[in-house]
Simulated scan of single mutants.
Amino acid sequence: MSKLKQMTVFMYVVQLGSITKAAEKLDVSKSVVSQHLKQLESELAVTLLKRTTRKQILTTAGEHFYQQCCTMHELAEQAWQDAQQLQLTPQGLIKITAPHALMDHLVLPALHEVFHAYPDVQLELISHDGRSDLMQEGIDIAIRVGESKTSNLKQKRIGDFRDVLCGSVATINNHQADIAALEVDNIRYVANHWQEKSIHHSFSCKNSRGDKSGSNRNGSPRFELNFKTHHKANTLPTCLSMLEQGFGVGIIPDFIFAKHKHTLAELLPDHQLNKVNVYALHSYQAAVPIGVTMAIKAIAKRLG
């Protein structure tokens, strides 16, 4: 580090023409500048400047060394500018992971909206319902459903959604009597791969203001239903397709259900499941790259 400082001091002495002006530029005393020059020439064992009280002249070695000092300084300045530019304009690789249910219908549209005007941004997207190691896999952002365990990662709640218990219009119509009696044993359940064999759903009335009393949907705002998994799909698109084709009922996020209302219907249109919180995680401890910040804000906006 001292060598770089000495080279910078030498460059300014040559550029400005005197030790006094170099000291003013660097906001140090003349004695400090003189000491740096003396130490530089001593360590190099080369005379760089011939100085008198009125002028200074570069030696041949000094001229060559001065040009290299200028090159070093230009590279350093460019490095600073490039690093700062990354905080002004998004560019480079941004690696993002999100659950299958959120990637295609939420994350992708948000990223396209925010980055389509920035051709220097490169996206690497990973649809994954597990919990990736952000540091080991070089992931910039992880979008996760539900809060993660405490770690050294930065975690921020960016919104929420509700799952909708639904099935094809024909399926719902065929089970009207079962639905009215809340007898669901005859209704086949199509589970996502992350759901267990036994499915438990807790509902609240859409018009309820928080009263948690009661156990049925006639006059009480909350009640519960239990299902047994009959079919299972390892991806959300497959689960969605099975629901549309009448294999049974299952849950899909509300923002996906809204796009399929012509083929799907809610099992209990007057009731709703609990909200599911969505979080954005990253491992940046200091200044967060602007591309990462922009991506998180865009996804949060989409959730909103």
Results as ranks from 00 to 15, higher is better:
Ser2Ala: 15
Leu4Ala: 12
Lys5Ile: 13
Gln6Leu: 01
Thr8Asp: 08
Tyr12Gly: 00
Val13Met: 06
Val13Glu: 03
Gln15Cys: 06
Gln15Glu: 12
Leu16Phe: 10
Ala22His: 01
Ala22Phe: 01
Ser29Thr: 15
Val32Ala: 15
Ser34Gly: 14
Leu37Cys: 09
Glu41Gln: 15
Glu43Asp: 15
Leu44Gln: 08
Ala45Ile: 14
Arg51Trp: 06
Gln56Glu: 10
Gln56Ala: 09
Gln56Thr: 08
Ile57Arg: 11
Thr59Leu: 07
Thr60Ser: 14
Gly62Asp: 04
His64Ala: 15
His64Met: 14
Gln67Lys: 15
Gln68Ile: 11
Gln68Ser: 11
Cys69Tyr: 01
Cys70Ile: 15
Met72Val: 10
His73Leu: 14
Glu74Trp: 09
Ala76Pro: 02
Ala79Ile: 12
Trp80Met: 11
Gln84Ala: 14
Thr89Cys: 12
Pro90Asn: 10
Ile94Ser: 05
Lys95Arg: 14
His100Gly: 14
Met103Gly: 03
Met103Ser: 02
Asp104Gln: 12
Pro109Cys: 10
Val114Asn: 01
Pro119Cys: 05
Glu124Asp: 14
Glu124Arg: 13
Ser127Leu: 05
Asp133Arg: 06
Gln136Leu: 15
Gly138Ile: 07
Gly138Asp: 10
Ala142Ile: 02
Arg144Ile: 11
Leu153Phe: 09
Gln155Trp: 05
Lys156Val: 13
Ile158Pro: 01
Gly159Met: 08
Arg162Thr: 06
Cys166Leu: 03
Cys166Phe: 00
His175Tyr: 11
Ile179His: 03
Ile179Lys: 03
Ile179Val: 07
Asp185His: 07
Asn186Ala: 13
Arg188Asp: 11
Arg188Gly: 08
Val190Gly: 02
Ala191Val: 02
Asn192Asp: 13
Gln195Ala: 05
Ile199Cys: 00
His201Ser: 06
Asn207Ala: 10
Ser208Asn: 08
Lys212Thr: 06
Leu225Pro: 02
Leu225Arg: 02
Lys228Asp: 05
Lys228Glu: 06
His231Cys: 03
His231Phe: 10
Ala233Val: 00
Ala233Thr: 01
Thr235Tyr: 01
Ser241Asp: 11
Gly246Leu: 06
Val249Met: 03
Ile251Gln: 08
Ile252Gln: 00
Ile256Lys: 00
Ala258Gln: 15
Ala258Cys: 13
Pro269Met: 09
Gln272Tyr: 05
Gln272Phe: 04
Lys275His: 11
Tyr279Asn: 08
Ala280Phe: 05
Leu281Asn: 04
Leu281Thr: 02
His282Cys: 05
His282Glu: 04
Gly291Pro: 03
Val292Ala: 05
Ile296Glu: 03
Ile296Asp: 00
Leu303Thr: 02
Leu303Ser: 03
